[in-house]
């Protein structure tokens, strides 16, 4: 099952976050809890963990891009059945 990986709202009024680093490439397998990318906010760098296990199928946003919360950053083919 394909799922979107979207930029989280790291704070309620977050306008955008900078995707500063990808720790995975398309084709990589990840487990839930693995840090898959990093987002820089006004305060810190947040290491974002995968919600699900699976294989990263596509990456749409490059390192250094500033994007709004909800923007689809990548897709994951998950091991989830539903």
């Amino acid at each position: 099952m394909k799922k979107n990986i979207a930029m989280p709202a790291l704070k309620p009024d977050m306008k955008e976050g900078i995707l500063c680093r990808w720790n995975v490439e398309a084709g990589d397998s990840v487990s839930a809890g693995d840090v898959i990318y990093e987002v820089e906010t006004d305060k810190v760098v947040a290491e974002i963990e995968a919600d699900s296990s699976g294989t990263i199928s596509d990456i749409f946003v490059e390192e250094g891009d500033a994007v709004e919360p909800g923007t689809v950053l990548a897709q994951i083919e998950t091991d989830d059945i539903v």
């Binding site: 987002v39 305060k43 810190v44 760098v45 947040a46 290491e47 974002i48 963990e49 919600d51």
Partner: peptide, 16 residues
């Protein structure tokens, strides 16, 4: 705020 954050200011974030 746009200056690079020091390495020790990294936090884990689990969206779920």
């Amino acid at each position: 705020n746009k200056e690079k954050k020091p390495e020790w200011l990294k936090v884990k974030y689990n969206g779920a």
